[in-house]
Design a protein around this nucleic acid. Sequence first.
RNA 1: GCCCGCGUGGUGGAAUGGUAGACACAGGAGACUUAAAAUCUCCAGGCGGAAACGCCGUGCCGGUUCGAGUCCGGCCGCGGGUACCA
Length: 850
Amino acid sequence: MTRYTPAEIEARWQAAWARDEIFKAVRSADKPKYYVLEMFPYPSGRIHMGHVRNYTMGDVIARYKLATGHNVLHPMGWDAFGMPAENAAMAIGGHPKDWTYGNIEDMRDQMKPLGLSIDWSREFATCDPEYYGQQQALFLDFLEAGLVYRKNAQVNWDPVDMTVLANEQVIDGKGWRSGAEVERRELTQWFFKISDMAGELKDALEGLENWPAKVRLMQENWIGESRGIEIPFERTDGGGTILCYSTRPDTMRGASFIAVSPDHPVSKALEGSNPELTAFIEDCRKMDTTEAAMEKAEKKGIDTGLRVKHPVYESVELPVWIGNFVLMDYGTGAVFGCPAHDQRDLDFARKYDLPVRNAFYMPGGETEVGTEALVPAKTEKVVYIDHFAGLGETTSQDGIDATIDYFEANDLGKGQTKYRLRDWGLSRQRYWGCPIPVVHCDDCGVVPEKKENLPIELPYDVSFDVPGNPLDRHPTWRDTACPTCGKPAKRETDTMDTFVDSSWYFARFTAPDAETPTSMEDAAYWMNVDQYIGGIEHAILHLLYSRFFARAMRITGHLPQGTEEPFDALFTQGMVTHEIYMTRDERGRPVYHLPDDIHWTESGARLGADGPMVEVVPSAKMSKSKKNVVDPVNIISAYGADTARWFVLSDSPPERDVEWTAAGAEAAFKHLTRVWNLCDRIGAMGKDAKGEGDEDLLRAMHSCIHDVTMGIESFGFNAAIAKLYAFTATLQKSKASHAAQREAVMTLAQLMSPMTPHLAEDIWAHQGGQGLIATAPWPKADQAMLVSDTVTLPVQVNGKRRAEITVPTDLPKEEVEKAALADQAVIRTLDGASPKKIIVVPGRIVNVVV
RNA sequence: GCCCGCGUGGUGGAAUGGUAGACACAGGAGACUUAAAAUCUCCAGGCGGAAACGCCGUGCCGGUUCGAGUCCGGCCGCGGGUACCA
């Protein structure tokens, strides 16, 4: 008897796959193509369990598609630009480029032993000049097509470090390194005009049938289409009008104030005129720029002293307030407040003693609004009071529509469809990103770089010992000639948001060496991605940006028609989570520790055997910043890749988060050893050995083929594996003939091959299979072997299970009813009562209702 | 705050509106063994009962249905996103 030695088996078969180049993707007309892609990793330095889970799932699909006769494209690359590389350079010295490429080397070395069916010849990193140079070409084409523009926008500014901070670097309103109170500062920045496509991006969601409904819903809400109206309110001081946007113009009667954003032109004009008001606006500027911070902050305001006329009730004047809760980016940056029918407005009105006036009541009751605003569903009927357009009892939705019509007819306002989606700011004041290929010329202004000068490469000789963007203070890099007039000019020092890098890499994979961003021939053949797999945390931004990019690339001639939605099917896997271990430094800030460094003692978790106690924070997504990561390399070296792969697939449903625990890998290894031993035993049988129960074994086999195939197709990997466990047990106990057992074990190996490809190859070879199992045709379930003659039905009385009957599968309903009523347990439960109704669901259940 | 999910034994989880707890981990008992490991067999939601069996049970409250873990409404808890983390 031989032993299961994964290290040896896995190396051997990986070499065999490489030798035959079976994973190399080549265009071919004789097979249907299948493009499977997992979201590419950020090269943090170590692969973690989330990666193993993600890439193993993709690999199962890729290998299954290969076995079912597809021409598979399954590439891998690196999302290599980003902040952590600069942070590492600041923290430990070194260069972001060296750090990143070193990490890529390490991670590739850790990933390759997993035996993924990847075409490594297509690998690239987004920080390769060959990639980001093409990205710069795309930028120039987008610019020419009017898809990119510049405008002012606010950033988090650290006044001590004199640098722009990412939201993640702002902790409780303070800079993470300096501890200084962060201010908002306005900079001129580059934007993609994604808002122009808002309606289309929303409408097209409906066609994404193979996307999770939750992702489509999240995107729809994010785009946030709303039908409303823009209403100009005339200032009483003759200073013009203030344009307000409202989705509830039907509540106009209840309007009791106007609120404008602190960034609104009205606010800016008043700033400095009055110390109190100036202080208020300055205070608003200290708030984080994040939506969450603004929404959670206490709602505050200040009366500007300005007044506007109510557009309908002309005798009414409304005060104009500045409100810290009004966003300049949404609508017109000004709203009218109707406290009776909006909770936020009501809280605001109660706080500042503003009037609360109903625009409607619920039918049958004129109740006054207290601390809760009256906000019924739009489909509910309400009774409008003294409505200018003559509305009485109707739904809010009808009220809104009628009001918009009335306002438009009387030239009081204009109906508008607006979106919450804002344009995509792509400028970053950082070094480690794709340089924006434009030049600032004193005479010609902002000038696009010439394509022949691409790539505009990052300089290597930079330092991170002082805060700020090293490109800004580089002695010569900025100096260039204006592409238009040739005079000395300065390069743009902003680099691109890393989301740009990941918004088109899937297209680049179809022709990674092309001299242009894409090759139309290759894109036409390989696009779209048939199955995209990645974390749910990317449900909105990455996927929405990629959808925008696909459209923009279509418009600029970089992708063929039909690629506007680049991902035909999407699967969002859950995250791998782990407890977080934390101590605090002398300033009370958290310091995180790796699970490997934690020692569990009777008194709790310690850092090292006698070290300080560690605070255990509940499980969260494994992330480098929280250090709650587990190293899969240990598991691979202890048990082999097949065990690691089997384990991550078997333990929980792929879309759900999984809490990592060390237990379980051992069990997976034991099972694979059992399968190995089984193959060994069958191999040792006499070729002509007869036995009993061939039919039963083959029936179980066909049922397993069916269930595993369905499981793989529906991402039910854990359920598929449960079936494989059961079938293995059946085969282990089987006394069938050698021929039947050999067929069974070879089929078992095939069904396992997407999950444990190395072990499967070995069993296949051991049993004398032809060629590689990876390219052997996928087994088909014989329908005739799946049906049985009899079926066991549970019998319920009033919905509670009381008995079981076994009847012929094709027994007519009336006969099933008779059989159920004849059952002793049913008779006992009925206790003489006569059934009112009997429900027979063929093949499933019988329910007797009394 | 807002948007989107999730919640089932000691644990991970299974279950087209149709027998809740498949499969596995941890646990218990047994076989083999001088012994241990390994392997194999069996038990195992809770309460009551010798057993047959009965009652309860899928975060909480209510509803729809012959029948609800699954659908609907309202809560609670946890997680993801919240536009400069990727």
